[in-house]
Amino acid sequence: MPTTDDLFADSTPAAPEQIAEGAWLLRGFVLSDADRLLDAISQVASQAPFRHQITPGGYSMSAAMSSCGEWGWVTDRQGYRYSTKDPLTDQPWPAMPDLLRQVAIDAAAASGYEGFNPDACLINRYETGAKMGLHQDKDEADFSAPIVSISLGAPITFMFGGLARTDKTSRWKLEHGDVVVWGGKSRLFFHGVAPLGKRSEHPQTGPMRYNLTFRKVT
């Protein structure tokens, strides 16, 4: 029986598209696994519910977040950091589902980063108006591993800049099943997403977008 993705999109991944030195956009790369990935997100969220974390400055993040793997990313008045325990439950984060780990490994390899073995998966849930300002992923102990970012659900605009916040950014429309991988010279480039538009939606998630970001923390 065809899946929703079969009805609405071509499930054949496109050739990797370079967006900067060391950074690649893999359109439709996980489309054939999208249904199972959404199920895995639900399983993780049943153990570590999505929540709007508070920044050190006291602001509530517009995107709701959960995590799985050995490490989860947290923010509060004490700062940004990784933790082995969910602060809501004081329990270890849910184990990273095998499917999530494997698609991250495969996407990294397809982008020239063999041997990637993530120990953290941050899951962001965007609803209408939610965004992520330009930032660097720099809380990890080692920057030699790439970042793998998977998009599911409603399309959103991804912004990719340079080593300075003021560097010019390029803008890329990310759709259901797309993956962005960056490392090497672009590992610390500033990046973010524009607010999720009012008319942005997908048949499976409605006006909601999920982003899974895989990292090697230690």
Rank of each mutant, 00 (worst) to 15 (best):
R36Q: 14
L99C: 07
K85A: 10
M61E: 15
V74P: 11
G79N: 09
A23M: 05
H52Q: 14
Q102Y: 02
P87D: 11
R81P: 13
I41A: 01
R77T: 12
L99A: 07
V30H: 05
A48W: 00
P97H: 12
S62C: 08
A48E: 01
G72F: 04
L100H: 04
S67C: 11
F50W: 15
G28N: 05
S42M: 12
L31G: 02
A48M: 07
P97Q: 07
W24R: 04
R81K: 09
F50E: 05
T55N: 10
T75L: 07
D35F: 01
Q78T: 13
A45W: 01
Q47E: 06
S60K: 08
G69F: 00
W93I: 05
T84G: 06
M96Q: 08
Q91H: 09
P56Y: 13
V74T: 10
G72W: 00
Y59M: 10
L31W: 03
V30I: 15
T84M: 11
D33L: 02
Y59Q: 12
G58A: 13
S32R: 08
Q78V: 05
T75C: 13
L26E: 05
A63Q: 04
P56D: 12
A63M: 09
G69A: 07
L100I: 15
T75V: 12
G79C: 09
P87M: 10
G72Y: 01
P56N: 09
L31M: 11
R77A: 11
G69Q: 05
A64L: 12
Q91K: 12
I105N: 07
W24T: 03
V103S: 08
I54D: 07
S60E: 08
I41E: 08
D106Q: 09
D33A: 10
Q47I: 02
S62F: 03
L100A: 06
T84N: 10
G57H: 08
G69H: 01
W24H: 01
A34G: 11
P97W: 06
C68R: 00
G57P: 05
W73C: 05
